[in-house]
Amino acid sequence: MNNGIAAGLKDAGSRISVVVLTHNRAARLRETLCRLRALPECPRIIVADNASTDDTVLMIALAFPDVRVVQCGSNSGAAGRNQAVACVETDYVAFCDDDTWWEPGSLAQAVRALDASPRAAVLNARIVVGDAGETDPTCVVMRNSPLDSTGLPGPALVGYMAGASVFRTAVFRESGGYDARLFIGGEEELLALDVLGRGHAIAYCDSLTVAHHPSAVRDSALRRRMLARNAAWIAWLRLPVGVAIGRTFEALLAFWREGTLLNDGETLLCGFVWAIGERQRASRDVLWMLREVKRHERRRASMPRATGARTARSREQNCPESVEP
């Protein structure tokens, strides 16, 4: 790499920080930090530690003294990122989990893309999974978004994946970040709706790459239940009543299938108190975008090689293990 290119990458790196979310994954986090430290952009790295009880904090202090650690007082799930973003001093902030990392050059490309696209507030990178480096099926769906992408660095979206995203720091803060009550499981949906509601855009950017090496040890049943619960709560917070009722029944059905209807059902119903109390229905424009994407997904699902099931599995897989309760 010649000096001019290296200088350009470092200049871009001075305008973007990386926030890494973790919980009790010291060994995996070490690899991720090694990867991030080797990036040519040399971004500032901030770890949001969700009250780890292993040697995570000590490991960072000894092996990565230049990495800032924000110790959350408790495991607050996705909302742990909020405390780290409070320390960000750059225009842009990239997110990853302790089992994902940004590929060289992607952060510089993100800076260029956001500089050139004032309407874009969030970019979702292409995710390559495992040693084979196959593109995550969810990214294939994003790549084929039916929404108007005029003036954006890629297809317009109504959502994104938290561990493979870049935000304008100011937009993340003004939109309130992640709601701790959702903990984990589709928590991006609420923030995405609020970002769109403020007139910003979310875009898929195929030229950005995040590597994901998920652990084989995962509680898939728990993830399914939390995804269903949060989907219902978010619907009562922002979506039409008919959608909220439908998602509520879907969540109860999921709990019944998992044999947790009593406990999870009670938690779901208790959450309706704050969800309905804080309800602010999304704008007509945002709801139109959601309907367009839904219609497009249904058309794709009716094709001979439906992607719906693979996308659902991918969505579940991309819930970060680093914030399990």
Rank of each mutant, 00 (worst) to 15 (best):
T169G: 08
C319A: 14
V18Y: 04
G80A: 05
V85R: 01
T56D: 02
D285W: 10
R284N: 14
L227W: 14
P320S: 15
V210K: 01
N24H: 06
C319K: 01
G8L: 07
G199V: 12
L269S: 06
T100I: 01
R224L: 13
A216C: 08
A282C: 08
P40G: 01
V210R: 02
L62I: 12
D115N: 12
A121L: 04
S145W: 08
I45L: 13
C139M: 10
F172S: 00
R44D: 13
D148S: 11
S215L: 15
R225K: 14
R126Y: 10
R25Q: 13
K294I: 09
A228R: 08
R28N: 11
V93G: 02
D264T: 00
L182P: 11
A254L: 06
T138G: 15
P155Q: 09
C139L: 08
S14G: 08
Q280E: 14
H200A: 15
G197W: 02
A86W: 07
I202A: 07
G271W: 04
S52I: 01
A132H: 04
G73W: 03
G133Q: 04
V286A: 12
F272K: 01
I202R: 02
P104K: 05
L290G: 05
T90N: 08
A282T: 05
A110M: 11
D131M: 07
V122Q: 04
N263T: 04
V323Q: 09
V18D: 07
P240F: 15
A162N: 11
A232T: 09
W233T: 01
C319H: 10
S74M: 12
D194K: 12
S149C: 14
G73L: 13
N144S: 13
G308R: 15
P214N: 07
T248D: 07
R112K: 09
A113T: 03
G271K: 05
A162R: 06
